[in-house]
Amino acid sequence: MRPIRWLRKNLVVVFGVLTLVYLIVPNLVVLLFSFNKPNGRYNYTWTRFSTDAWQHPCGVAGMCDSLTLSLKLAVYATIGATVLGTMTAFALARYRFRGRATTNMLIFLPMAMPEVVMGASLGTLFLNMRIQFGFWTILIAHIMFCLSFVVVAVKARVMSMDPRLEQAAQDLYASPTQTFLRVTLPLAAPGIAAGALLSFALSFDDYIITSFNAGNTVTFPMFVWGSAQRGTPVQVNVIGTAMFVIAVLLVLAGQLLGSSRRKVR
């Protein structure tokens, strides 16, 4: 009867672990098939082990160009959205002013809107303004939908900060600029970093909104989408796996850095 009692007690954990497996399995499939050497164009069935794709990650025409473009877009969009979003978040978290509720609503709406709707309407506007689709229209769209996520992340952090720390700095004769740079900004940094990371991931990964505003420009997700119709090259799996590994390592490094700093204090 022991195992049954154990199972009853830990049923939740068992389900939780199963869910975790469900979440990770597709990533493992991507990893596994990055070492495949398919016979035809379609990389669906396991044929034989090969490191060809890893040795020639840019062996597919156009893929690395699209990857570079997506990285560039993501960096620009992250900078834009983080700067605008942080300023907005500080205003919303620190000040009472007329129109605050309306602004909160305006920030919330893009997150509650299906991407197709946002993409199609922005695309219609550009089209009718006769603005040439390309890098800049994609960038504008990306900053627009990343902005709200930054505001939410930074606002949550700023609201939870103790205002007395800044008062203390001022009591100790710090100028407003010094207080902001030495006290406020470092305290808000985790929220800003979270918002920036989220922006980067959202921008890099976006297909739906981009497809309405890209014209003939091809970002990495658009390349993958196009290739899916004719058979995805193995190199796409290489990029997917590499992104996954780099991101996990970065997050782990951040965690270690955070915990070692906490120990020092």
Partner: peptide, 12 residues
């Protein structure tokens, strides 16, 4: 973590 492998690649 799965977020970091692109949405499209995971769907594929």
């Amino acid at each position: 973590a799965p977020f970091f492998t692109s949405f499209l690649i995971r769907t594929l």
